[in-house]
Amino acid sequence: MELLQLLVGGVAQGCVYGLIALGFVLIYKATEMVNFAQGDLMMLGSFVALTFIGTMGMNYWLGLLVAALAMAVFGYLLDAIVLRRIIGQPQFAVVILTISIGFLFRSAAGFIWGHETQNFPETPFTNRVIDAGGVILSLEHLSIIAGTLILAGLLYLFFNFTRLGNAMQAASQNQLAAYYMGVPVKHINSLIWALSAIVATIAGVLFAPVSLVDPSNGFYGIKAFAAAVIGGFGSLIGTVLGGLIIGVSETMAARYLPPGFKEIVAYLIMLGVLIVRPHGLFSTLQRKKV
C-alpha cells in the first residue's frame, strides 16, 4: 500500500518533469534549439498566475487562462526580438543564450516578486483527496497527471494532424527548404515559443500548490532535461515517459536509498541511458551521412 502511495506521488512528480520537458521538446522539434530557460519560463508562468489569481483575485481558471495568454505573448516576443537574431549560428550559441536568458528571468523575478518563497492561493484542488481503496490520492497530484495527459495528447494531435503542426515539423527538418516551400519559418518559430510558454505556464500553475512559488524553481528544468534526454529529444510520448521514469525513481530513491540519492538518481539514469543509447530511448536521430 505504501508502495502504491509512493508511486502516485512519483507519477505526479514525474508528470511535472514531463510537462517542463514537453516545452523543451516542442521547441526542439520545431527549431532544433534547446531552450535551457524552460524551467525559468515555468517559474515566470507561475509567478504571473500568482499575480492574477492571488493578488488580483481572479477566478482560478480565468487566471490560468490569462496567465497562459500573457506568457504566450511573452514567448512569442522573446523569440521575435531575441532568439530570431541567432538563427543560422551554431547550436552552441543557442545554449549560451538561453542559459543567460534563464539567469535574467531569475533575477528579474526576484526583483519583481521578491526572493522569498510564496504560497500559491487556494485552487479547486487544494486539500481535497480521493480515497481509492486505501490509497489516498490528493487532487493536486491527480490534476497534474490529468493535465499532463491531456496536454501531451493535444500536442500529439496538433503535430500530426494539423497544417500548422506539419509546417512546424517541416521547418525543423530543413529550414531553408521549408522557407522555399512557402512556410513562414520565422513566424512559425515564434509561434512555437508561444506554445512552449503556454505549456510551461500550465506546468507551473499545476505544480505551484505542491512546490510553492520561488524564483529558483527554474532549477527543476535541469531535471526535466534528464527526462527529455531519456525520452530522446523530439519524441513527445518518450518525453512524458522519461519524466515518469525520473519522477518515480526519485520518489523511490528518497524512501529506500541513503540520503543524497534523491538528488542524483535522475542524472544517474540519464547517464546510463546515454551510455547505452547515446540519443535516448525513443531516439529519432540517425547517424549523419556525408
Partner: peptide, 14 residues
C-alpha cells in the same frame, strides 16, 4: 537586490 550579479551576468552574456 540580491540577484543583481547573476542578472548582470545574464545581460552581458545575452
Amino acid at each position: 537586490t540580491p540577484g543583481l550579479e547573476p542578472g548582470l551576468f545574464g545581460v552581458v552574456m545575452v
